[in-house]
Amino acid sequence: MKSRFKKHSILPGFGLSLGFTMLYLSLLVLLPLSMIFVNTASMSWSDFWSTVTEPRVVASYKLSFGAAFVAASINMVFGVLIAWVLVRYSFPGKRLIDGLVDLPFALPTAVAGIALTTLYAKTGWVGQFLSFKVAFTPLGVTVALTFIGLPFVVRMVQPVLQNFDKETEEASAILGANRRQTFIRVIIPEILPAALTGFSLAFARALGEYGSVVFIAGNMPMKTEITPLLIMTKLEQYDYAGATAIAAVMLIISFIMLLFINGMQWWMNRKFAHY
């Protein structure tokens, strides 16, 4: 009855490769992550609820979500712009800039954190020219999260623009549309799914980000404390139950984001299957 589970194939190694994969994932991912829910389940509902709705915790959700949303939005606008410039225009040093876009993926987050803090502090190279404070405010958190999420939208939109037929735009122009109409009616609908997927990836990454934010945030309770930092603080005080409860809330939100992103990618693949 093996064929019910798996279609016939002459290739060997199914048992070995799937067995190893399942064992590894169970031990390293599923068992550890389930500990969050097992430990949370041993708390009483009222304990759990009062922990995750404490004012300091709620303030951290607001900051984490708000800053992640703003950063992902900035990245969506500038990501589409950068992808457009990189695909459509030619200028000297284009290959170099294209390669540099991935820097946030390669640079350790702590390194990015101290570099951004130094730049955007009151006396920093950028900070001294600004009339408002960036480092140690929610704005600083947003700057760090923008850096972290920068490549996502660019890398999602770029291939779509590359495969996009220039003739479609020419047809639109021949039919009498001006450039603005072509952009809004022809180009935007084509790149929107990719841009939204990039947005959600950047948002999800920004929500959980820790390394680059702790340096620039200043970490003042109620003001510039992100949720992952609060988990860290509770752990350092050996308040494992509190840390786990907040982690459970974050995990559930992350799972919902993941489902949303997968659904979006599935929709995109179906929509663009003819390419």
Binding site: T21, M22, L25, V29, L30, L31, P32, L33, M35, I36, N39, A204, R205, L207, G208, E209, Y210, G211, T227, P228, L229, I231, M232, L235, Y240, A243, T244, A247, M250, L251, S254, F255, M257, L258, N262
Partner: peptide
């Protein structure tokens, strides 16, 4: 489902990734 589980570590905050092993 298996593919989604492989993606899970990317969706989890690094701090939570550390926390789960503390719990174990």
């Amino acid at each position: 489902l298996l593919t989604t589980i492989i993606d899970l570590p990317f969706a989890v905050s690094p701090v939570i990734a550390g926390l789960v092993f503390v719990l174990l």
